[in-house]
């Protein structure tokens, strides 16, 4: 049975907002920047508590990245906030040159990632951001699973030295990670131990993976569910030790099948321990308007899709 009962339903972006406020309280070096989406990013509480350490830059994301990079010179710890598309694709070269290559301690915090932002549609539903960010040398990429973990991750990246991409989302989503569960950047979490298949998931799809594991157990398949909240640096040891036991892997992400978690895992397996793998990811398409549940279903990211992927991968063992 799913050992992680649903404690609540909350949006992960609110976890970011809560974590940012706490990070600001703990560390006076923390500053925040936003590009006309203060409410959507849940940055209002920080802005209210620390008006002098909050910078509204208007609808000018490229400028925001540059200013954030500059703020690190003098020891500030800047957190930028906007939607995931405008946090990455819009400003890739500003991140590449002024943040990643220059080695600046900027925290790029991105809401409304993936399909589940829903009705705004494909222009806003970036499915390529994990890939873009993990290709940048020195970039840490964190994709927490629920409200509690997004709060923890926000606090963790605040004290981590170096550029970070933190990806979270818009909809209310099950809260199931206990608030006191230890969180360490780069350490994957085995949520459910199992022997028959390794299910690696990140972000919103971790909950779906837990649901799938529960369904699989009814068929007698004991799936191991691993929350890969840090995609870079990837917890290679955790990936290998799990697949060593299960012999096959399913990866689940709200992202294009190209460039994301699945490819990160595939690379480790191909180089160290070749094993069959199936992707639960968007099949190289743009998204569209719809409700989060409708979209996950249509694009093949729902619980039954994970179950089906497990059956396929086991048949290939």
């Amino acid at each position: 049975m799913n050992p992680y009962p649903k404690l609540d339903e909350k949006d992960t972006r609110s976890g970011f907002g809560a974590g940012l406020l706490e990070a600001g309280q703990r560390d006076p070096r923390v500053v925040a920047l936003c590009a006309d989406l203060t409410g959507s990013l849940k940055m209002d509480a920080f802005a209210k508590a620390f008006p002098d350490r909050f910078l509204q830059v208007g609808i000018a994301e490229a400028n925001m990245m540059g200013i954030a990079a500059g703020l690190t010179i003098g020891g500030r710890v800047p957190f930028t906030g906007t939607f995931a598309n405008f946090s990455t694709g819009r400003v890739y070269d500003q991140i590449r040159q002024s943040i990643a290559y220059a080695g600046k301690n900027v925290k790029i915090c991105a809401s409304h990632a993936g399909l589940t932002l829903g009705e705004d549609g494909a222009t806003h539903q970036i499915l390529e951001d994990i890939g873009m960010m993990r290709m940048l040398p020195g970039m840490t990429v964190v994709v927490p699973a629920d409200f509690n973990q997004t709060r923890q991750a926000t606090l963790a990246i605040a004290v981590h030295e170096g550029p970070v991409y933190l990806r979270f989302g818009r909809p209310k989503w099950p809260v199931f990670i206990p608030a006191d569960m230890p969180f360490e950047i780069g350490k994957a979490q085995v949520l459910v131990p199992g022997t028959d298949v390794s299910i690696f998931a990140c972000g919103h799809l971790v909950w779906r993976a837990l649901e799938a594991a529960e369904a699989l157990l009814r068929e007698g398949i004991r799936a191991e569910v691993i929350n890969v909240h840090t995609i870079k640096p990837l917890d290679t040891a955790a990936v290998l030790s799990s697949v060593e036991r299960t012999g096959c892997a399913v990866t689940c992400e709200e992202h294009n099948r190209h460039g994301g978690l699945g490819d990160a895992i595939a690379q480790v397996l191909a180089c160290h321990r070749p094993a069959p793998q199936e992707y639960v990811a968007v099949n190289d398409r743009f998204g569209e308007s719809g409700t989060p549940d409708q979209l996950l279903r249509k694009y093949g990211l729902d619980t039954p899709d994970i179950v089906a992927a497990v059956r396929r991968v086991r048949a290939r063992r």
């Binding site: 705004d120 222009t123 569209e288």
Partner: peptide
């Protein structure tokens, strides 16, 4: 409008072939 499988996406697109729309927009500027 804004429903699954619609040509009337949340932000205008050419992807679904809606007559009148020649360019996707939504990301500003």
């Amino acid at each position: 409008f804004r429903r699954l499988d619609s040509r009337l996406q949340g932000h205008p697109t050419t992807h679904e072939g809606l007559p009148g729309v020649r360019m996707a927009s939504g990301s500003l500027g």
